[in-house]
Design a protein around this nucleic acid. Structure first.
Length: 413
RNA sequence: GUGGGUAUAGCUCAGUUGGUUAGAGCGCCAGAUUGUGGCUCUGGAGGCCGUCGGUUCGAAUCCGACUAUCCACCCCA
């Protein structure tokens, strides 16, 4: 049998209500926080991600869905949402509109990875980006928005971790200090960290190997190396979060794996959904717009994995989509035709209704109506059509009431 | 890319030391005196036991490879 490609998942009718719920909530929270929706293509020129995400990152080096189109262009399915948003910001001159520009999107993303709990090859991200604001007020506004979003979904078991990874200037100083520290214990590090010592010592802090982790405990802390500007920014963010009453932890080991991050980085983590516990990750990227050809412009945003969010929501009560208003059961051909017209008219008036499509017995029709979870049902036979009235049944209470067929819509309201 | 687990009905799983027509619960469909759901009862449909190969008189059961899936590393949302 054919099956969906590895790492992809269908959203089938019995589950889509979760997606609807989350998407509605995202749109509503964005409206209140002043973020406007932007939709960008699923694919972009490969170069966008090479420059935006960074040529040396794992995402670009080994996880992208890249192919040549029939015109010989190198195309890549978007592995993340930030670079496309920046590209669109520049291409559509959004910087010429009143600043800051606050955008949000819900989009599929693609990464060629080995699937596991909370990690798919096609996954969906709710993300926001804010351009043109360098003050930490926007940092805290965005974090408070995620906080609100999770709070209103009833997710209360996440930890907010924050950190600052500085600007290129102070990070450089810090890298030097780190190299010096790890150089002394080089022989003890794991294989990958051995390499990281050369390429990106920051990432050693993130290593899950107990040995490296232990060594990292004693490593110099980035916060001690921040330049004045970066330190003030981070202090400002902390003060803002306290002002808003949002709890956070400082985790000097969070290091985002995409090259563009500067200063603020943060993540919301769950310990209930397996190893891939980061439900939301984000941070500031003050160099990215310039890197992609624009003026020097501050930026900050986050990405939030919808599949992971659904995992976190596993045992929560999620409101189902609206029930069908009425099922029209019918006996015989004449009644079926009548039901057809009645259903059509009610649908024109905005009600949802269903009729028999399989010529089943009344009993079977009622069973089906029950499984659909309809609010009301009505049975039409020759006598009902003749008299123009029938018994409307409330499927929840079982209560019946005699009504005129041309007045059904009054009862459905 | 590396490691480990799993693979029997639509779903969740039984299947005794290899032995003949492979089972249960749930779900689906149909009935239980002729036109009304939920509870109960009865019946029915539905499985090349993941695929290929090997051992054996005989394999769902043992062995190997492959594939799929799950979990972890890595990476990240």
């Amino acid at each position: 049998m054919m099956q969906a490609p590895k790492g992809t998942k269908d959203a089938i009718p019995e589950n889509v209500y979760k997606w609807h719920y989350i998407e509605r909530k995202a749109a509503d929270v964005c409206r209140r926080f002043g973020f406007k929706e932007i939709r960008t293509p699923v694919f972009e020129h490969t170069e966008l991600f090479q420059r935006g995400v960074g040529d040396t990152t794992d995402v670009v080096q080994k996880e992208m869905y890249t192919f040549n189109d029939k015109g010989g262009r190198s195309i890549t399915l978007k592995p993340e949402g930030t670079s496309p948003a920046v590209r669109a910001y520049l291409e559509n001159n959004l910087y010429a509109q009143p600043q800051p520009t606050k955008l949000y999107y819900i989009t599929p993303c693609y990464r060629y990875e080995k699937p596991q709990a909370g990690r798919l090859r096609e996954f969906h991200q709710f993300g926001v980006e804010a351009f043109g604001a360098s003050d930490p007020t926007i940092d805290s506004e965005i974090i408070s928005m995620v906080h609100t979003f999770f709070g209103e979904l009833g997710v209360d078991n996440l930890t907010l971790n924050i950190n600052s990874i500085g600007c290129p200037v102070c990070r450089n100083e810090y890298n030097k200090a780190l190299r010096e520290y790890f150089e002394g214990r080089k022989s003890e590090l794991c294989g990958t960290c051995h390499d990281r010592l050369e390429t990106n010592p920051l990432r050693i802090l993130d290593c899950k190997s107990p040995i490296c982790h232990g060594i990292a405990e004693g490593a110099p802390v980035i916060l001690d190396y921040l330049c004045d500007e970066c330190r003030e920014h981070f202090e400002g963010l902390k003060a803002n979060l306290e002002n808003l009453g949002i709890e956070y932890k400082i985790d000097t080991h969070i290091v985002r794996g995409l090259d563009y991050y500067t200063k603020t980085v943060f993540e919301f983590v769950s310990n209930e959904i397996g190893a891939q516990g980061t439900v939301c990750g984000g941070g500031r990227y003050d160099g990215l717009v310039e890197e992609l050809g624009g003026q020097k412009t501050s930026g900050i945003g986050f990405g939030l994995g919808l599949e992971r969010l659904i995992l976190v929501l596993e045992n929560k009560d999620i409101p189902k989509d609206m029930k069908t208003d009425i099922y029209i059961a019918s006996i015989g051909e004449q009644a079926k035709k009548y039901a057809q017209k009645l259903a059509f008219d009610l649908r024109q008036k905005g009600f949802s209704c269903e009729q028999d499509l399989l010529s089943r017995s009344v009993k079977a029709q009622m069973k089906y109506a029950d499984k659909l979870g309809v609010r009301y049902s009505v049975v039409l036979g020759d006598s009902e059509i003749e008299s123009g009235s029938a018994e409307l049944k409330n499927m929840e209470t079982g209560e019946k009431s005699e009504i005129k067929l041309d007045e059904i819509d009054e009862f459905l309201k």
